[in-house]
C-alpha cells in the first residue's frame, strides 16, 4: 500500500477517523453533558441560560459525528456496514434520541406554557443521557470485542451488548461528559447559577474519578488485548501516565476554580482515553471475541488506494476550514450567556 510521510494510507485514515471521533467527543461531549445535567437547574431562567450556553454551538458540534460517520463509510466501508448492522437496535434508538434531543432544544422555548417547557426539559435531559450511555455502551463492546464469525457476521443477540464491562464504560462516558459539560457551563454562567455549578462540577469530578479508576482496573484485568501493544512498546506507558497526570491536574484546577484550564484538561482527558483505545485496537478495528483470526484489520477494511488518497486531500482542505468556522463561532459567542429576544 502507498505511503505518505512514511505511514500507509490505511493508517492515515485510522488516524483521521480517530481524530474526528475525538473532536466529536470533546465538542459534543460538553453539550451532551450539559443536557444530562439539565434538570439539576430548577429555575426557568437557569434552564434557559444553560440551554443558550450551548445554543449557538451544539449543532456544529454534532456535525463532527456526521463527518466521522462519512469518513468511516468512505475509509473503511466494510467496518461501517458491520458496526452499524451489528448494533442495529442500539443505533436506531440512538438516532431517535438524537431527533428528540434536537427538537427539545429547538422547541422548548418556542411556547410559554409551563407543561410544554417541562416536557421538553425532561426530553432534553433524557435524550442527552441516553445518547451518552448508548455511545459508551457501543464503545465498551468494541473495546471488548464481540462474537463475529469468519464472514464478519455477528452471532450474538441484543443481550450480548449488556455485559458488565460495556455498562461500566457507558457509565464512565456519562460521568466524563457530565463533568465536561458542567465545567463548560461554569465558564458561561454568572451569579447564583454559577455558584450552584461550582458545587455540581465538584461532585461530577469525584464521580468521574471513581469511574476512571474502576475502568482502568477493569481494563487491565479483563481486557488483555488492550494492553498487549503497551507491553510490546513500553514507551507507550507514557500515555496512561499522562492520563493520570491530566486527571489530577483537572481536579486541581477545578478546586482552584480555574475553569478554563479545567476545560482544557477535561478535553485532553477525553482525547487521551480515545487514543488509548485506538492504540489497543490498532491495527484492528473490529475485534472478534470468538477467534482473533476473524478480527477485521484496517487493511482488510480499507477502501481503494485512489479513494483513500483523494479523501485525504479532501480532509486536508476541509479540516482547516471546519476548524476555522468552529473557532469563529466559539469566538463570536465567547463570554457569559446573556438572554435576549432571539435566545432559545
Amino acid at each position: 500500500m502507498a505511503t505518505f510521510l512514511s505511514l500507509d494510507l490505511a493508517t492515515w485514515w485510522f488516524l483521521v477517523i480517530g481524530g474526528l471521533i475525538t473532536g466529536y467527543g470533546v465538542l459534543d461531549g460538553f453539550d451532551l453533558g450539559a443536557g444530562a445535567l439539565h434538570l439539576f437547574f430548577n429555575k426557568e431562567e437557569s434552564r434557559r441560560t444553560a440551554l443558550n450556553a450551548i445554543g449557538p454551538v451544539w449543532d456544529g458540534n454534532e456535525v463532527w459525528l456526521v463527518i466521522a460517520g462519512g469518513a468511516l463509510f468512505a475509509g473503511f466501508p466494510l467496518v461501517y456496514g458491520v458496526i452499524l448492522s451489528t448494533f442495529y437496535i442500539p443505533f436506531m434508538l440512538f438516532l431517535v434520541a438524537l431527533i428528540f434531543r434536537a427538537i427539545s432544544i429547538e422547541f422548548r422555548s418556542k411556547e410559554p406554557m409551563r407543561w410544554w417547557r417541562k416536557l421538553w426539559d425532561i426530553s432534553y435531559m433524557a435524550s442527552s443521557t441516553f445518547i451518552t450511555l448508548l455511545l459508551g455502551l457501543i464503545l465498551g463492546n468494541l473495546i471488548q470485542g464481540l462474537p463475529f464469525n469468519e464472514k464478519h457476521e455477528f452471532t450474538g443477540t441484543l443481550l450480548t451488548f449488556f455485559n458488565p464491562y460495556a455498562i461500566l464504560i457507558a457509565v464512565t462516558t456519562l460521568s466524563l461528559f457530565m463533568m465536561h459539560g458542567a465545567i463548560y457551563l461554569t465558564m458561561k454562567t454568572e451569579n447564583r447559577l454559577y455558584a450552584k455549578l461550582t458545587v455540581l462540577v465538584n461532585n461530577c469530578s469525584k464521580f468521574f474519578i471513581l469511574c476512571f479508576i474502576m475502568t482502568s482496573m477493569a481494563t487491565l484485568i479483563y481486557i488483555p488485548h488492550m494492553t498487549q501493544e503497551f507491553k510490546r512498546y513500553p514507551v507507550l506507558f507514557a500515555l496512561p501516565l499522562a492520563a493520570v497526570l491530566t486527571v489530577l491536574n483537572l481536579k486541581r484546577n477545578i478546586d482552584s476554580r480555574k475553569y478554563f484550564t479545567a476545560f482544557v484538561f477535561s478535553s485532553i482527558t477525553t482525547a487521551i482515553l480515545l487514543i488509548l483505545f485506538a492504540i489497543g485496537l490498532f491495527p484492528n478495528i473490529i475485534i472478534s471475541s470468538t477467534n482473533p483470526a476473524w478480527n477485521i484489520s484496517i487493511y482488510q477494511a480499507a477502501a481503494s488506494e485512489t479513494s483513500l488518497r483523494i479523501m485525504l486531500i479532501i480532509a486536508a482542505i476541509g479540516t482547516p476550514l471546519v476548524l476555522a468556522y468552529t473557532l469563529f463561532v466559539f469566538w463570536t459567542f465567547r463570554g457569559k450567556v446573556k438572554l435576549n429576544e432571539m435566545s432559545y
Binding site: 456535525v63 456526521v66 463527518i67 460517520g69 462519512g70 469518513a71 468511516l72 463509510f73 468512505a74 475509509g75 466501508p77 461501517y80 477502501a303 479513494s307 483523494i310 479523501m311 479532501i314 480532509a315 476541509g318 479540516t319 476550514l321 471546519v322
Partner: peptide, 11 residues
Amino acid sequence: FGSALAAEGIF
C-alpha cells in the same frame, strides 16, 4: 458513496 458523503459533511 462514502467519499461523497464525507465531502458533504466536511464542506
